[in-house]
């Protein structure tokens, strides 16, 4: 059976791949392709955050009663990552490579350390507490991700 941890981790890797496409385009100085790839990446990230904030986290909070715990921290980090993506996107729109690379560097570490907390700590907790409802929950999240 697919676990929440495996499913959501795979979506993190999918977002990483999209981010890498933007990086590759930048390194080839192909700014139009970079802009398109970055928007593609940003949409995938936003869809992932939405699925977590609207479906996964509330289910976890309802089941465990922990509404001010790890999910709250994850929401705060989502907000920080959203802001970083906006700044990087703005730098790309202006064609300012140096600013983009500075924002992207921060974004990569912020995003990766955030993913690590989710993958190593929060998702295993979700798997532990939400074992019964995992199949329906994942079906729901899958639908949310594909709609985006």
């Amino acid at each position: 059976m697919t676990t929440i941890r495996n499913f959501m981790t795979e979506d993190h890797r999918h977002c990483d791949d999209l981010f890498a496409e933007a990086e590759q385009a930048i390194s080839k100085k192909n700014f139009d392709a970079a802009k398109a790839a970055f928007e593609h990446f940003r949409n995938a990230m936003l869809a992932h955050f939405n699925a977590e904030e609207k479906t996964l986290f509330p289910t976890f909070e309802a089941k465990t009663g922990m509404s001010m715990g790890p999910t709250q921290v994850m929401r705060m980090e989502h907000a920080q990552i959203r802001a970083l993506m906006d700044d990087a996107s703005a730098a790309l729109a202006e064609g300012n490579t140096d600013d983009y690379l500075g924002q992207a560097d921060t974004l990569v570490i912020m995003m990766q350390q955030h993913n690590m907390k989710e993958e190593n700590i929060l998702y295993p907790m979700c798997d532990q507490h939400l074992a019964g409802e995992t199949p329906e929950l994942l079906a729901h999240i899958e639908a949310e991700l594909s709609e985006a």
Binding site: A79, Q80, A83, D105
Partner: peptide, 21 residues
């Protein structure tokens, strides 16, 4: 990165922190 992270927290999401570079 830590400098950015702490500046980010200081800014309370109202004032942006400078990028790492």
């Amino acid at each position: 990165f830590l400098a950015w992270l702490h500046l980010q927290n200081l800014g309370e999401s109202k004032v942006p922190a400078p990028a790492m570079n």
